[in-house]
């Protein structure tokens, strides 16, 4: 197995894990974790495409990946902040019970 296959398969696995989490779970913190897993799967795929057979690293791709990791961290932070606020107001973490927030 070459590096592409491993990278793509790993990335795909992470993405599917993320979507599985989003599909099945109802707890908001678990949902945010799933989103993070999904994003990281996408980043793994991105880095895989940037890798060359000789092992030389493409700096553009790596810098983009670092940027994406940073943005992902910010998203998680904002998401958790919203979760805390929602929990304080409604005393629940279950998204099904928060359906009334839908417009």
């Amino acid at each position: 197995m070459d590096v592409y296959t491993i990278g793509l398969a790993g990335g795909m696995l992470l993405i599917i894990l993320g979507i599985y989490g989003l599909t099945v779970k109802g707890n908001m913190i678990r949902l945010i974790l799933s989103v993070e897993i999904l994003t990281n799967g996408a980043i793994v795929v991105l880095v895989t495409f940037g890798a060359t057979p000789l092992g030389v690293i493409n700096p553009v791709i790596i810098s983009l990946a670092i940027l994406a990791v940073g943005v992902g961290g910010c998203i998680a932070a904002v998401g958790l902040a919203i979760v805390i606020q929602a929990f304080r107001h409604y005393k629940t973490l279950n998204v099904r019970e928060l359906k009334r927030l839908r417009w």
Binding site: I19, Y20, L22, T23, K25, G26, V95, R96, R102
Partner: peptide, 13 residues
């Protein structure tokens, strides 16, 4: 648009 997250995500999957 039922607003059920799991349902929407299943459709996306």
């Amino acid at each position: 648009h039922p607003g059920i997250l799991n349902f929407n995500m299943s459709l996306i999957l």
